[in-house]
Design a protein around this nucleic acid. Structure first.
Length: 115
DNA sequence: TGCTTGACATAAT
DNA sequence: CATTATGCCAAGC
Protein backbone atom coordinates (compact mmCIF):
# COMPACT_ATOMS: atom_id res chain seq x y z
CA UNK A 1 0.00 0.00 0.00
CA UNK A 2 1.20 3.40 -0.83
CA UNK A 3 -0.62 6.08 1.09
CA UNK A 4 0.91 8.48 -1.38
CA UNK A 5 -1.22 7.19 -4.20
CA UNK A 6 -4.21 6.93 -1.95
CA UNK A 7 -3.80 10.59 -1.17
CA UNK A 8 -3.50 11.45 -4.81
CA UNK A 9 -6.58 9.48 -5.67
CA UNK A 10 -8.46 10.98 -2.77
CA UNK A 11 -7.54 14.42 -3.97
CA UNK A 12 -8.68 13.75 -7.48
CA UNK A 13 -11.92 12.34 -6.18
CA UNK A 14 -12.62 15.71 -4.63
CA UNK A 15 -12.67 17.46 -7.96
CA UNK A 16 -16.30 18.34 -8.60
CA UNK A 17 -17.94 17.74 -11.96
CA UNK A 18 -17.47 20.45 -14.50
CA UNK A 19 -14.20 21.48 -12.93
CA UNK A 20 -10.66 20.47 -13.68
CA UNK A 21 -7.37 20.50 -11.83
CA UNK A 22 -3.86 20.44 -13.17
CA UNK A 23 -1.37 17.77 -12.30
CA UNK A 24 0.67 20.25 -10.38
CA UNK A 25 -2.37 21.37 -8.51
CA UNK A 26 -3.32 17.85 -7.55
CA UNK A 27 0.23 17.24 -6.46
CA UNK A 28 0.19 20.31 -4.28
CA UNK A 29 -3.13 19.39 -2.72
CA UNK A 30 -1.88 15.90 -2.13
CA UNK A 31 1.06 17.32 -0.30
CA UNK A 32 3.69 16.52 -2.87
CA UNK A 33 4.08 19.81 -4.66
CA UNK A 34 6.71 19.70 -7.32
CA UNK A 35 6.07 16.10 -8.08
CA UNK A 36 3.41 16.42 -10.72
CA UNK A 37 4.89 13.52 -12.60
CA UNK A 38 4.04 11.24 -9.76
CA UNK A 39 0.44 12.26 -10.08
CA UNK A 40 0.43 11.33 -13.69
CA UNK A 41 2.22 8.17 -12.87
CA UNK A 42 -0.33 7.30 -10.24
CA UNK A 43 -3.03 7.75 -12.82
CA UNK A 44 -1.10 5.68 -15.29
CA UNK A 45 -1.30 2.81 -12.88
CA UNK A 46 -4.82 3.69 -12.02
CA UNK A 47 -6.75 0.75 -10.67
CA UNK A 48 -9.58 -0.18 -12.97
CA UNK A 49 -13.08 0.76 -12.03
CA UNK A 50 -11.65 2.97 -9.36
CA UNK A 51 -14.38 5.49 -9.78
CA UNK A 52 -11.74 8.14 -9.97
CA UNK A 53 -12.56 11.05 -12.28
CA UNK A 54 -9.19 10.94 -13.96
CA UNK A 55 -10.57 12.93 -16.87
CA UNK A 56 -10.76 15.99 -14.69
CA UNK A 57 -7.02 16.16 -14.47
CA UNK A 58 -5.38 18.16 -17.23
CA UNK A 59 -1.96 19.66 -17.70
CA UNK A 60 -0.98 23.20 -16.94
CA UNK A 61 -1.75 24.30 -20.44
CA UNK A 62 -5.37 23.40 -20.09
CA UNK A 63 -5.26 20.55 -22.49
CA UNK A 64 -6.01 16.93 -21.94
CA UNK A 65 -2.80 15.10 -21.64
CA UNK A 66 -3.09 11.40 -21.74
CA UNK A 67 -0.47 9.41 -23.48
CA UNK A 68 0.38 10.90 -26.82
CA UNK A 69 -1.54 9.34 -29.61
CA UNK A 70 -3.76 7.52 -27.21
CA UNK A 71 -7.44 7.35 -27.87
CA UNK A 72 -8.04 8.21 -24.26
CA UNK A 73 -7.61 11.80 -25.25
CA UNK A 74 -10.83 11.92 -27.19
CA UNK A 75 -12.62 10.08 -24.44
CA UNK A 76 -11.38 12.54 -21.88
CA UNK A 77 -12.52 15.51 -23.92
CA UNK A 78 -15.89 13.91 -24.38
CA UNK A 79 -16.32 13.25 -20.70
CA UNK A 80 -15.38 16.79 -19.84
CA UNK A 81 -17.61 18.28 -22.46
CA UNK A 82 -20.41 16.17 -21.10
CA UNK A 83 -19.83 17.94 -17.81
CA UNK A 84 -20.02 21.33 -19.40
CA UNK A 85 -16.38 22.07 -19.97
CA UNK A 86 -15.84 23.99 -23.14
CA UNK A 87 -12.84 23.50 -25.37
CA UNK A 88 -11.62 26.06 -27.81
CA UNK A 89 -10.46 25.47 -31.32
CA UNK A 90 -6.98 24.49 -30.29
CA UNK A 91 -8.37 21.71 -28.14
CA UNK A 92 -7.70 23.55 -24.92
CA UNK A 93 -10.03 24.66 -22.18
CA UNK A 94 -10.07 27.90 -20.29
CA UNK A 95 -8.33 27.03 -17.07
CA UNK A 96 -9.13 30.45 -15.72
CA UNK A 97 -12.72 29.50 -15.92
CA UNK A 98 -12.81 25.81 -15.15
CA UNK A 99 -9.94 25.41 -12.75
CA UNK A 100 -11.14 23.93 -9.50
CA UNK A 101 -10.56 26.13 -6.55
CA UNK A 102 -10.52 24.44 -3.26
CA UNK A 103 -10.75 27.64 -1.37
CA UNK A 104 -13.90 28.35 -3.26
CA UNK A 105 -15.31 31.54 -1.86
CA UNK A 106 -18.87 31.06 -0.79
CA UNK A 107 -20.75 28.76 -3.04
CA UNK A 108 -19.36 28.00 -6.37
CA UNK A 109 -18.89 30.60 -8.93
CA UNK A 110 -20.44 28.47 -11.55
CA UNK A 111 -18.64 28.43 -14.79
CA UNK A 112 -20.65 30.21 -17.44
CA UNK A 113 -21.47 27.90 -20.21
CA UNK A 114 -20.99 30.30 -22.97
CA UNK A 115 -19.70 29.30 -26.24
C1' DT B 1 21.12 -3.28 -7.73
C1' DG B 2 21.40 0.33 -11.24
C1' DC B 3 19.72 2.62 -15.46
C1' DT B 4 15.84 4.17 -18.24
C1' DT B 5 11.34 5.97 -18.70
C1' DG B 6 7.34 8.81 -18.01
C1' DA B 7 -1.00 11.16 -18.02
C1' DC B 8 4.10 16.98 -15.75
C1' DA B 9 5.83 21.84 -14.49
C1' DT B 10 8.59 25.71 -15.04
C1' DA B 11 12.08 28.68 -16.88
C1' DA B 12 15.00 29.82 -20.55
C1' DT B 13 15.84 30.29 -25.48
C1' DC C 1 4.16 30.17 -29.84
C1' DA C 2 7.60 25.73 -30.20
C1' DT C 3 11.76 23.59 -28.27
C1' DT C 4 15.06 22.48 -24.93
C1' DA C 5 16.78 21.67 -20.42
C1' DT C 6 16.18 20.36 -15.68
C1' DG C 7 13.93 18.92 -11.36
C1' DC C 8 11.29 15.02 -9.40
C1' DC C 9 10.72 10.12 -7.95
C1' DA C 10 8.25 5.53 -8.43
C1' DA C 11 7.98 1.49 -11.65
C1' DG C 12 10.01 -1.64 -14.98
C1' DC C 13 13.44 -4.03 -16.80
Amino acid sequence: MTPLYETIYATIRQIPPGRVATYGQVAALAGIEGRARQVGYALLHLPDRSGIPWHRVVNAQGQVSTRAGSDSMDLQRELLQAEGVIFDESGRLLLERFRWRRHARRSVDKPRYEE
